[in-house]
Design a protein around this nucleic acid. Structure first.
Length: 459
DNA sequence: ATACATACC
DNA sequence: CACTGGTATGTAT
């Protein structure tokens, strides 16, 4: 376990997400990046909060381990029966008749900025600020700079790094250009963000008698002609696998996984679970440290343990991943379930300033809701303290609301109720720790059933 | 229904 | 100096 002591290399135990294998990060000196990120973060409030979160996750893993140790041979045979039944049901649902593309623009925001200002060409570029980077171009990634990294750390890793502030109008414009291409291949394509989409090309392939790979080639060329931007594409029998595939030959590349069960199983057999959308840092650690699972195939090997330790929805998901399954249908209509607005500002203990911030957020939220003719009846206030601790407080109302005044009055009540509480929490160390609120955010949430009601009112 | 955590871009 | 913002979903109570 402890083959190296943290005393010698403390940065090794700081589990940032910044050193994961990611497209364009091949030749990066991970040790150096890890060390720099650690050095820049250590001692900060943010860092301390991360340590707290890590300790919590470690505890969760310990609990799971203990649970795992209690499982008897009898239990295992019982859960193996459950797992086998689940897997045969899943297997029966396997659909290899569809060909899905996942299209993913390469370093999208950075590429758009370079397209608009060619003088940026050939330079390491980050879109974002000293606080946060949205996207880094491939040259910057060579230094370990990447999305979700704070800019001041990125500049340490790459002093030449050029920063460009985000301009979502531009990205939306180019996103719309790409979205004019997709319908030629699938009128019901699914856009998941400004730079990503799923395209069902089954019919086009049949009509024109060409392969998914050929469609992908053509689509990438068309997107380049229409936008001047490159993208990468994955081709696979389902959306989950197509997404994994689009990352394989990034940038400006594609990868085809044929519609063949053997090919899928071979692909899955060595695929690290972290490559799967929905399996992040925490889930990866849990599965690896409790059950020794690191590849998708091992989900099947440990299926009994998975069913014994995890909920139905989790175990169903893990087993389907182990079998290389994913969604193959096009959901008819995706309705939004929530709308939110949040803003980070420098920590303050001034209550009138907090109410002023709340006012601004309520205004933004109300405007956003009116744009889409939405209203909701569950309002959530989100607060982040100066120590990065996040709290949420919610109320469900009798009526649906969307006016600034309604939002503000209910949110203010929620905030008011918190202010003495944060004072009490800090009560142990009087004067020294003011009730600072770094950040507060406002959510208006809508229940699924409520949305139907809303449409009746507003549509 | 509420609170909190995880994940994705 | 400086660690986002928007949405969905899972887990626990």
């Amino acid at each position: 376990m402890a083959s190296t002591s943290d005393g010698d290399r403390p940065w090794q135990s700081y589990h940032t997400v910044f050193t994961n294998a990611k497209a364009g990060m091949d030749g990066v000196d991970k040790e150096k990046v890890q060390k720099t990120v650690y050095e820049m973060s250590k001692g900060s409030k943010y860092f301390e909060n991360e340590q707290r979160k890590e300790a919590f996750i470690k505890q969760k893993i310990e609990n799971l381990r203990a649970q795992c140790a209690q499982i008897t041979a009898n239990d295992i045979s019982y859960f193996q029966t459950i797992a086998d039944k689940k897997m045969s049901e899943l297997e029966a649902s396997r659909d290899l008749s569809k060909i899905w593309l996942h299209s993913d623009m390469d370093a999208f925001y950075a590429s758009v900025e370079t397209l608009v200002d060619p003088s940026l060409n050939g330079k390491p570029l980050a879109v974002g600020s000293m606080s946060m980077i949205c996207t880094a171009n491939y040259m910057a990634r060579k230094f370990g700079v990447r999305a979700a990294m704070p800019g001041f750390i990125a500049r340490k890793l790459c002093p030449e790094l050029i920063f460009v502030p985000p301009d979502f109008k531009k990205y939306t414009f180019y996103s719309e250009l790409t979205r004019k291409v997709f319908p030629k291949y699938d009128p019901h394509f699914i856009a998941t963000s400004l730079d990503e989409a799923y395209i069902n090309v089954t019919e086009i392939c049949n009509e024109r008698g060409i392969s998914g790979g050929e469609v992908a080639e053509e689509l990438r060329n068309t997107i380049y002609e229409e936008t001047g931007l490159t993208c990468s594409v994955g081709v696979a029998p389902n959306r989950l696998l197509a997404k994994v595939c689009s990352d394989i030959n990034k940038p400006n590349g594609q990868f085809v996984l044929p519609n063949d069960r053997r090919a899928v199983m071979t692909f899955i057999s060595s695929l690290p679970i972290r490559k799967i959308g929905g399996i992040g840092k925490v889930t990866e650690s849990m599965l690896r440290e409790v059950l020794g699972i690191s590849t998708c195939e091992e989900m099947v090997h440990k299926s009994a343990h998975i069913c014994a330790l995890f909920s139905h929805s989790s175990s169903d998901f893990f087993l389907s991943v182990g079998l290389g399954l994913g969604k193959t249908d096009t959901p008819q209509f995706k309705m939004r379930k929530s709308i939110s607005s949040e803003r980070t500002f420098s920590a303050t203990e001034d209550e009138s300033l907090l109410y002023q911030k709340l006012d601004e957020i309520a205004e933004t939220l109300s405007n956003d809701m009116h744009k889409e003719d939405l209203s909701g009846r569950t309002l959530t206030l989100k607060l982040k303290t100066a120590s990065f601790e996040v709290r949420t407080r919610a109320v469900s109302l009798q009526k649906y609301i969307n006016s600034k005044q309604d939002i503000l009055s209910h949110a203010s009540k929620l905030l008011k109720a918190e202010l003495p509480l944060s004072l009490r929490l800090m009560g142990r160390k009087p004067c020294l720790t003011p009730r600072q609120l770094l950040n507060h955010c406002l959510y208006l949430e809508q229940m699924v059933a409520s949305l139907v009601y809303m449409i009746l009112i507003y549509a």
